[in-house]
Write a protein that binds this DNA or RNA. Sequence first.
DNA 1: CCCCTATATTGCATAAATCGCAATACAGTA
DNA 2: TACTGTATTGCGATTTATGCAATATAGGGG
Lengths: 302, 302
Amino acid sequence: MDTRALAVFVTVADCLNFSRSSEQLHMSVSAVSRTIQRLEDELGQALLIRDKRSVRLSGAGRDFLAYARRAVDEWQQVRRQLGSATELVGEVSLYCSVTATYSVLAPILAAFRAAHPAVEIMMHTGDQADGISRVLSAQDDVAVTGRPPRLPQRLEFLPLLESPLCIWVPTADCAVRQVALGGDADSPGFDWDRLPFIVPERGITKDILDAWLRERGIRPRVYAQVAGHEAIVAMVGLGLGIGIAPQLVVRASGMADSVSPLNMANSLPPLAIGLCGLRRRLQNPLVKSLWDVAGQTYNGAV
Amino acid sequence: MDTRALAVFVTVADCLNFSRSSEQLHMSVSAVSRTIQRLEDELGQALLIRDKRSVRLSGAGRDFLAYARRAVDEWQQVRRQLGSATELVGEVSLYCSVTATYSVLAPILAAFRAAHPAVEIMMHTGDQADGISRVLSAQDDVAVTGRPPRLPQRLEFLPLLESPLCIWVPTADCAVRQVALGGDADSPGFDWDRLPFIVPERGITKDILDAWLRERGIRPRVYAQVAGHEAIVAMVGLGLGIGIAPQLVVRASGMADSVSPLNMANSLPPLAIGLCGLRRRLQNPLVKSLWDVAGQTYNGAV
DNA sequence: CCCCTATATTGCATAAATCGCAATACAGTA
DNA sequence: TACTGTATTGCGATTTATGCAATATAGGGG
């Protein structure tokens, strides 16, 4: 019998709800369900009475809960006593865009370094669009990324902040700007066809944009497919076309003066930015602590 | 962390010897070694100091041992409390020869039935030679068999009793008997060639006999290869030849008067008879309890 | 001094446990 | 009635544990 199973049982016994427990425990509902089943199997007793609309403790469950709390507690105590929990040592690998390094990560890393000076951070930067796949393929423990529309259950997402997703227009007076500001972007007659559009090559921003365009029946003239928001902003700033990027990136880019947002009534939904990691990896205390520090740093911000 | 790992640690801490622990725990040495490694890994502390010729507890190990004992104890206590250990229910499957049923198994089964009336015994009888493979292929939980010369480590063997392995000669006055008793079986000149030999088709007895014959450079005249000691005894009793079988089988066969042993100075080694089972299956409490009852029933007999 | 035994560890292949996903079942609700 | 929320289950895939064989090393004779 595994202490993890005991911890699961304690959580479920507290929530009296498998779904909520599964979230707290960073596991799937089925994993929780089976963990309890195994436990009951091993004990030859039902611990939780589930009757299709409620979960409650059985008599044996109440007795066992007392034991389980104590056992979990004593285990953690002995861990601490042996010093394994005093200081975390090891490394955590992190994937993010260059922009995220400044704007999202800086405060997290400062706090994390202060809390766990012996943990090394392996940071890999690149196109934010690759974050999810880097995490899924276990190349990195955690990535800073936008929230995917559909989150695979083995991924965990911790929202940190939101940034408006805008379509950006060059500030300099040029053909692109004149067309872009020459009409009402909300109206069906807006001249999308004459506007060179710089779109993301892949990733969440591309997915959101595609959905948004499809909804409105807009078929943009794609001027370039570019990897990385930073590059999109740069190209827009140079007057090559209009492009999509989170406001955050523009602010951090040093090109805030070279681009301005395209005003629209029904604008794009804001982008939720946060940490993304494999659930399984979150059981690793190092990854878990980075996660926790991030959550605390941005506590209540979103 | 698994309570099983704790139990392993407690055992090793008590023995201060991995090999002996592995026997007590019904696991391979490597499994024990790795269990301890995992534990140390999880705690980030060495628990046992191994310096190539001795094992002793580290400081952390001593502390942890106190915890581990308590944790194992409390776990067993809560199990008992919840009643999972009150009565065993289920079934155990058993393979043995017809003879073993009477001579070896009877007292075990009587004691086992008394101790665990709710456990059903599924008994399969057949040639004792097949016992090992039945167990290896998990067709049966446990078999009564002779001790194999080389025991695969995933098998456990519990010796119960020994029986002399003899070469049997018909009692009735016949050609076979005259030749067999007409010379000194120990002498190199003994007339093996003129004696029809009834040998086991396969199994441990065959292996032992083959080795014994090879050692002495005897090439017997094989009259028949037969499955099952009972059949060998029967054929010898009918005067068809000489044959090998444990004394136990002859005694139980009702043909004890029809056959007599061939006297030899350097006789065959006695056959160790006992229970054989997959180590893994021994962790099943039902199988374990049958094993334990057998051990107690024949306690000290061998 | 060298071979042999005893003991613990490690690479590797295999067996078992666990997990997440998708499908299912069922009760309450809009 | 369709829909939502919740728990379970079959199944494939991944992760973990195990046994075996090989390796390493020390001690004990001959």
